[in-house]
Amino acid sequence: MTSVHDVAAYILAREGNLSTMKLQKLCYYAQGWHLAWHGERLFDEPIKAWRMGPVCPALYRYHRGQASVSDWPQGSKELISPSGASTIDIVADFYQPFTGFDLGNRTHSERPWLEAWESAPPQHRGNAEISTETLREYFRSLHEGSEHTD
């Protein structure tokens, strides 16, 4: 299975320097859309509902204290499958105009983050995992909704 570190390496090789917030959100969206389109996780590491939106703690441990990053030596872009690369490319192209803060704000109105954030008692907020099933259902509903609009 591909690691979130491999996904980050692929995104940064493709996009160059990114804010760490945008990198986090692109990994989140890539996971969600990959679940919707392919029915399987793009990476195994959990995503948590933090105050600023979805965050993968496995990435955070490496970029903590940095505002931006330009490469990700902890991962390998070569380990991304063709379907994974396709998902990441589509996600990166679609969300490219948005800043990390824009994407963080966007996630605050989306069901996966809202459910995880609001289901946790106040003292545990920021520690609740965003469910893979909720991600799959939410992004699948977006995908199916887009097929019915012309």
Results as ranks from 00 to 15, higher is better:
T2H: 11
E78P: 09
R125D: 03
P97Y: 06
V4A: 14
A30W: 00
E129W: 04
C56F: 03
G39T: 02
G104F: 04
I88A: 01
I88T: 03
W72D: 02
Y95E: 06
T134K: 02
L142V: 07
T149S: 14
T134M: 07
W37T: 04
P97E: 09
Y28A: 00
E137P: 02
R140G: 05
P82A: 15
H124I: 12
V55C: 05
Q66W: 11
P121V: 12
R111H: 09
A58F: 10
R111S: 02
I130T: 06
Y28F: 11
V91F: 03
S70W: 04
M52T: 11
S81A: 05
E133T: 14
G104M: 04
S86K: 11
G39W: 05
A30T: 07
I47R: 00
F139A: 01
S68F: 08
S68Q: 09
M1H: 06
S70G: 11
W33M: 02
V7D: 00
D71T: 13
Y62V: 15
P97V: 01
T87S: 07
A92M: 08
R51Y: 13
M21Q: 11
I88E: 02
N105G: 15
Q74L: 12
S109G: 14
I90Q: 11
V91D: 01
I90G: 07
Y28C: 05
P112D: 03
H124F: 14
R111M: 07
V55F: 06
Y60T: 07
L59A: 08
E40N: 12
P122A: 10
G104W: 00
H63S: 14
K48Y: 14
E45G: 06
K77T: 14
W117K: 08
L23D: 02
G53W: 01
E78W: 05
M52K: 09
N127D: 15
M21A: 15
Q74C: 08
P121C: 11
G104R: 02
H38G: 01
G65H: 04
A58Y: 08
I88W: 00
G104H: 01
A9F: 03
S19A: 10
R140Y: 11
N127W: 14
W37Y: 12
Q24Y: 05
C56R: 01
S3I: 03
A67Y: 15
Y60P: 06
F98W: 09
S68H: 07
A116G: 02
I90F: 07
V7F: 01
L12P: 01
E147S: 11
Y10T: 04
Y28I: 03
P121Q: 13
L42E: 02
S119L: 05
R41S: 13
P73T: 09
G104L: 04
R136A: 12
T132D: 12
V69A: 09
D6F: 03
W33S: 03
S70E: 10
S83R: 15
L114W: 00
A67V: 14
E40C: 09
R41G: 07
W50L: 10
E110A: 03
M1E: 11
G53Q: 05
E40L: 09
A49R: 00
E144L: 12
Y28P: 01
A49G: 08
N127L: 15
G53I: 04
R136V: 10
G100P: 03
R64E: 13
H63M: 15
